[in-house]
């Protein structure tokens, strides 16, 4: 465990040093803060504009940070050959993958917390208090985003384990898009015959169903979220991320690094 945590802390330091993540974070913070100004352009429901723009910015930039940092997580180490001194030590490849992933997860969560603080400040200014913390499923929405980023980071780590940084980023973004389209596509394929329906269902099970963790609408309309979501929704995301990470460890374990 100590070895894994040591590798994770190195991954966090690396991520903080990378300008890409910092730039994305600054841009996201600017957008979240700007939602207050943009909402003045509408009439009627300003709250929904602030919440929509704020949460979408957080989700979009959080996903990009997870994708681009995750794509280089292992692939860049292999390209720079900095992975060799690590795996030459008594550290298994599985521990290396998990350590790197946990470092990435800590980075994306830290980024999200910074964005969430700014978002909460904007909401507090608009609503004139912190009442929204009780009236909306704010904390659950943030938890769902943490799990979403964990899923995206796991997918990026998986591709990073056997391909280049660029390809891993492309593959991950493709899967993120597929993850948002999955529920629409499975319905469409079901109308195209039995085998198409089965194929659609199989693909639906494989791609990350990011829509299952999309609680933005509940935040906009102050809907109550069922208590079972903590088990089914968040549980699904954690299980999926764990599974993909296990595959990443298996693939990297068999990779020929000569």
């Amino acid at each position: 465990m100590t070895k894994i945590l040591a590798i994770a802390s190195v991954a966090i330091r690396e991520a903080i040093r990378q300008r890409l993540a910092v730039n994305l974070l600054v841009f996201a913070l600017a957008l979240v803060a700007a939602s207050l100004t943009i909402s003045a352009l509408t009439f009627g429901e300003q709250y929904r504009i602030i919440v929509d723009l704020g949460l979408s910015s957080m989700e979009l930039f959080g996903t990009l940070i997870a994708t681009f940092l995750g794509a280089g997580l292992i692939a860049r180490d292999v390209e720079r050959r900095s992975v060799y001194p690590v795996i030459a030590k008594p550290v298994s490849r599985g521990q290396y993958v998990v350590g790197r992933y946990l470092g990435l997860l800590a980075t994306t969560t830290l980024n999200l917390l910074v964005m969430a603080l700014v978002f909460a400040a904007v909401l507090a200014v608009y609503t004139g208090g912190l009442g929204f913390l009780h009236e909306t499923p704010f904390l659950l929405v943030l938890s769902a985003m943490v799990v979403q980023f964990a899923m995206v980071a796991a997918v990026a780590t998986f591709f990073s384990a056997f391909t280049t940084t660029t390809l891993a980023a492309i593959f991950t973004l493709s899967l993120v898009v597929a993850g948002h389209l999955a529920s629409d596509l499975v319905r469409y394929w079901a109308t195209k015959g039995v085998w198409a329906g089965r194929l659609g269902t199989a693909l639906y099970a494989v791609v990350p169903n990011l829509e299952a963790l999309n609680l933005k609408e509940a935040m906009v309309y102050k809907d109550a979220v069922a208590g079972s979501f903590a088990v089914t929704g968040l549980g699904y995301g954690v299980a999926y991320a764990g599974a993909v990470l296990a595959f990443a460890a298996a693939v990297f374990g068999r990779r020929d690094l000569r």
Binding site: I38, L41, T42, F43, R48, I49, D52, L53, L55, S56, E59, L60, V177, H180, L181, D184, L210, E211, N214, K216, E217, V220
Partner: peptide, 19 residues
């Protein structure tokens, strides 16, 4: 479909255009 999970945000952007 093209909104990729950001339907309410896309709706808001078109709403601003409507305003």
């Amino acid at each position: 479909v093209a909104a990729l999970g950001h339907r309410t945000t896309l709706s808001d952007l078109y709403w601003l255009s409507t305003v």
